[in-house]
Amino acid sequence: MKVLAAMSGGVDSAVAAARAVDAGHDVVGVHLALSRMPGTLRTGSRGCCTIEDSRDAWRACDVLGIPYYVWDFSERFKEDVVDDFIAEYAAGRTPNPCMRCNERIKFAALLEKAIALGFDAVCTGHYAKVIEDADGNRELHRAADWAKDQSYVLGVLTHEQLKHSLFPLAETPSKAEVREEAERRGLSVANKPDSHDICFIPDGDTRGWLEERIEMSEGEIVDQSGTSVGKHPGAHAFTVGQRKGLKLGRPAPDGKPRFVLEIRPKENKVVVGPEALLAVDRLRGIKISWAGLPLAEAFSGEAFECMVQVRAHADPVAARASLARVESGAGSAADELVVDLVEPLRGVAPGQTMVLYRGTRVLGQATIDSARSLDWDPAAVS
């Protein structure tokens, strides 16, 4: 099989490529240049896609004896990931750029180009597993090492994309084993720190980064009844669940801290309230996709049992989900995923991604359009 190995410059993608070579595939390495002005060096574990990462990817390919290329996807990355991130925050939502990158860059743009060039599959260093059912249909499952499992950020993959996806680290019991293998193979990235945070905000200051790109204006902070309790410098700089930095002028009647419950960019308001109201019971999702063939219940109108996960490293919780057809105006309609949680989740924000599971299998995902506590009606805020 002809395989294109996506080489980030990290240890996981290097070992994944090495295992693809060992499996007898015809492997070519490619590093994605996602910035027109990449930094020269990484800052510890912050950031990625630097010149240093590109060189590390090249060294790994040299050790493995496979061809190496750099593909410029910077314009597509800016449009589909960075600009989307800014637009989502401007709309008062909290996006997950890693989901968008996997959806639109690594398993859309990259895979499309790979197939056009005659490759059979794209290989990455993600910790996830693809399994074929009795009929040969592919399903996405959690990796053997649940602590490193990355099936959540791959929940956007479609049935067609799974046909061309290769995850050689699927059965690896621990990250330590991957590093030991890299050391044995003579790969210089064996002890390179994992990258984290948002790759295009390497200093981790998301608020400061957004303030340079979204027009901020002072507005009101109100409590859950609509009473003004303070001022803010710009609603877009806040996230649901935030406690610090509110600088409220009026304390809560019970003296307890208040948290951000909702952001209303059109009104330029931030709604705050007690911690208890961060616990949400019902999620509504849009932009739905299915990882593999969808469950039959999904289109029958029946509710189905599942587990739902709303963050990459969060524990999944039990839920009942169903599809609802919602009129969106001008005679058009769209599907909405309604998820009722068996136990409430804390501090879920619109814009986050919810991924549905059954056992280890990823069923699909949706972007959260609303997350509400059944104990509080947001309409009470005027």
Rank of each mutant, 00 (worst) to 15 (best):
347 G>D: 11
195 S>C: 07
204 G>Y: 00
94 T>E: 14
163 K>V: 10
332 S>L: 13
57 A>G: 12
351 G>Q: 01
294 P>E: 06
126 H>A: 08
181 E>M: 09
244 K>T: 13
28 V>R: 06
210 L>D: 06
242 Q>P: 03
125 G>T: 10
9 G>L: 01
319 A>D: 11
376 W>R: 00
138 R>G: 11
224 Q>I: 14
373 S>R: 00
141 H>W: 15
296 A>P: 04
250 R>A: 13
154 L>T: 08
177 E>N: 09
382 S>H: 07
335 D>E: 11
264 R>S: 15
117 L>P: 06
268 N>Q: 09
256 K>H: 04
228 S>I: 10
213 R>Y: 14
232 H>A: 06
376 W>D: 07
84 D>I: 01
139 E>N: 07
307 M>A: 12
86 I>L: 03
309 Q>R: 07
330 A>W: 02
165 S>Y: 09
65 G>T: 11
175 K>E: 13
71 W>G: 08
263 I>W: 05
71 W>F: 00
145 D>C: 12
373 S>W: 05
379 A>V: 11
125 G>F: 13
300 S>W: 04
6 A>W: 02
55 R>P: 02
229 V>I: 15
77 F>N: 09
372 R>H: 07
124 T>P: 14
145 D>G: 02
157 L>T: 11
23 A>Q: 02
79 E>D: 13
72 D>I: 13
53 D>V: 00
121 A>F: 09
317 V>T: 14
243 R>S: 14
192 K>Y: 10
123 C>A: 11
81 V>W: 04
244 K>A: 15
104 R>A: 14
94 T>Q: 13
182 A>Q: 05
297 E>Y: 00
98 C>V: 04
378 P>N: 03
133 D>G: 08
362 V>P: 04
62 D>L: 10
204 G>C: 06
226 G>Q: 01
72 D>G: 05
360 T>H: 03
333 A>I: 11
275 E>M: 04
82 V>W: 04
30 V>A: 13
374 L>W: 11
249 G>Y: 03
234 G>T: 12
255 G>P: 09
231 K>L: 15
106 K>H: 08
239 T>Q: 09
16 A>C: 07
275 E>S: 05
240 V>R: 09
242 Q>Y: 02
137 N>I: 08
122 V>N: 09
188 S>G: 09
230 G>H: 02
220 E>P: 03
230 G>A: 06
63 V>M: 12
83 D>L: 11
379 A>R: 08
179 R>T: 08
164 H>F: 13
374 L>D: 15
188 S>E: 12
